[in-house]
Design a protein around this nucleic acid. Sequence first.
DNA 1: CGTGAGCGG
Length: 291
Amino acid sequence: MMQQPPPVPSQVMPPPTSDQGGQYQQQQQWMTYQQPPQQQPPVPPPAGWTPQPVPPPSQQQYAVPPDTATDGIRSLWIGDLQQWMDENYLIGIFAHTGEVISAKVIRNKQTNFPEGYGFIEFVSHAAAERVLQSYNGVQMPNSEQNFRLNWATYGAGERRPDEGPDYTIFVGDLAADVTDYMLQETFRGVYPSVKGAKVVTDRTTGRSKGYGFVRFGDENEQLRSMTEMNGVLCSTRPMRIGPAATKKPVSGQQFQKGELVKQCSRFTFFQTPRGSIMGGLELISDEMIPL
DNA sequence: CGTGAGCGG
């Protein structure tokens, strides 16, 4: 379909281009911090969530070199991005901290349209954490929706180690202001094996649908949490916890509802009506996608 | 009252 240039607020408009097509050029996917922003500071976090305000604008003009080896993850994952929110926009938001190194919006390899998420790299783990704590869940500049931030799982280009299985629970009755991070921390404080949490949101509005998921590395903690955390407050509402419904199969395949997706058989021996012994496959169980 | 899909060269 044709994409019209989005209604970008002037503060974050890309520089005017001379081409008539109205198409964005993407030869530069990475934007790097270069100069102080001329835009207004972001919306302050609401009372009661931010433990500390964002530090005032720093005097330093250039980011200090990152210390990859000793400092841990310095990148944040950011989701629910609108089409017009480019690297320039992301950097502009955090530039006043003087601690942002770069931003990247992930785009589809074929269509080059934004996939709705990106990464922001900071000079240090601590700098990233300050942003995570103070901006997560508050309103994004020039947007109706809220920041959706989390730790990037790994730094750019880093290998992901083999992960064990996930044990997931469903969490319903979530208050509207509950973010992934809040949900995750609510459980992680009690269950060390918590790997992550996700609040399901409407892709277009970015608003919570009121439920989410928490993933555990340890099955016992998953099971315990289902009774222990049921009815516990997260933000302002008691959570309602249940088992997570069957996940989609993990391969790239798609399955239709009603389709048989798994069969389990074993080779057994049985006796025919005539008394002879034969071997054959016996169906033990199968699984269908619910209609 | 609702069972996503979200990790980059």
